[in-house]
Amino acid sequence: ATVHVKGVTYHFDNPEQAEKFAKRMAKELNGEVHVDGNTWHVD
């Protein structure tokens, strides 16, 4: 799974980790999470 945060890409072997990371980053950055298959975007 892949997480894109403000133009930076993070790779996770575990999709659950990717989801938790994306949601945590969105919270910290006051952003929104969008999911597209195995790819998470934090804007």
Rank of each mutant, 00 (worst) to 15 (best):
A1V: 11
A1Q: 08
A1H: 13
A1M: 08
A1P: 12
A1E: 04
T2H: 08
T2N: 08
T2A: 08
T2R: 10
T2I: 12
T2K: 12
T2C: 07
V3K: 00
V3Y: 00
V3S: 00
V3H: 00
V3F: 01
V3P: 00
V3C: 03
V3I: 02
H4D: 05
H4S: 09
H4P: 00
H4T: 15
H4Q: 11
V5N: 02
V5T: 03
V5D: 01
V5K: 01
V5A: 05
V5H: 05
K6E: 08
K6P: 03
K6L: 15
K6G: 15
K6T: 07
K6N: 15
G7P: 03
G7T: 04
G7S: 05
G7D: 06
G7M: 04
G7I: 02
G7E: 05
V8Y: 10
V8A: 08
V8F: 11
V8H: 11
V8E: 10
T9W: 12
T9I: 14
T9D: 06
T9V: 14
T9K: 10
Y10S: 02
Y10D: 00
Y10R: 03
H11W: 13
H11A: 07
H11R: 09
H11I: 09
H11V: 10
F12P: 00
F12T: 00
F12E: 00
F12N: 00
F12S: 00
F12I: 01
D13C: 06
D13K: 10
D13W: 07
D13P: 11
D13G: 08
D13Q: 11
D13S: 12
N14S: 14
N14K: 09
N14M: 08
N14G: 07
N14T: 14
P15G: 08
P15L: 11
P15D: 09
P15V: 12
P15A: 14
P15Q: 11
P15E: 09
E16V: 11
E16K: 10
E16R: 09
E16H: 10
E16D: 12
E16G: 08
E16N: 08
Q17R: 07
Q17L: 12
Q17S: 12
Q17F: 07
Q17N: 10
Q17A: 13
Q17P: 03
Q17W: 06
A18V: 00
A18K: 00
A18H: 00
A18N: 00
A18T: 00
A18W: 00
A18P: 00
E19P: 01
E19N: 04
E19K: 06
E19L: 05
E19I: 05
E19Y: 06
E19M: 07
E19F: 05
E19V: 05
E19D: 07
K20R: 13
K20Q: 14
K20A: 15
K20E: 15
K20L: 13
K20I: 13
K20Y: 09
F21S: 01
F21E: 03
F21V: 03
F21D: 01
F21P: 00
A22P: 00
A22F: 02
A22L: 02
A22K: 01
A22I: 02
A22C: 03
K23R: 12
K23M: 13
K23P: 00
K23A: 09
K23E: 13
K23I: 14
K23Y: 14
R24P: 01
R24L: 14
R24A: 14
R24Y: 14
R24N: 11
M25V: 11
M25Q: 06
M25L: 11
M25E: 04
M25T: 06
M25F: 04
M25P: 01
M25R: 05
M25D: 01
A26F: 02
A26E: 04
A26S: 05
A26K: 04
A26T: 03
A26P: 00
A26Y: 02
K27Q: 13
K27M: 12
K27D: 11
K27I: 12
K27W: 12
E28Q: 10
E28D: 07
E28N: 06
E28S: 06
E28T: 06
E28H: 08
E28Y: 08
L29S: 05
L29V: 06
L29C: 09
L29K: 03
L29I: 10
L29N: 05
L29F: 07
N30W: 06
N30M: 08
N30L: 07
N30A: 08
N30Y: 06
N30F: 07
N30S: 08
N30T: 05
G31Y: 09
G31C: 08
G31R: 05
G31E: 04
G31T: 08
E32C: 09
E32Y: 14
E32S: 15
E32T: 15
E32Q: 14
V33F: 09
V33M: 08
V33A: 12
V33H: 04
V33D: 02
V33R: 02
V33E: 03
V33S: 05
V33W: 13
H34K: 12
H34F: 12
H34T: 13
H34A: 06
V35F: 15
V35R: 15
V35S: 10
V35N: 13
V35D: 03
V35L: 11
V35E: 06
D36M: 13
D36P: 01
D36E: 13
D36G: 04
D36Q: 13
D36I: 15
D36N: 13
G37C: 02
G37Q: 06
G37R: 05
G37W: 03
N38T: 10
N38E: 06
N38L: 11
N38M: 11
N38W: 09
N38Y: 10
N38H: 10
N38G: 06
T39F: 07
T39H: 15
T39M: 11
T39Y: 07
T39A: 14
T39Q: 13
W40T: 02
W40V: 03
W40H: 03
W40S: 02
W40A: 02
W40M: 04
W40C: 01
H41Y: 15
H41F: 15
H41L: 12
H41R: 13
H41G: 03
H41I: 15
H41V: 15
V42W: 02
V42F: 03
V42R: 01
D43F: 15
D43E: 14
D43G: 12
D43C: 09
D43Q: 14
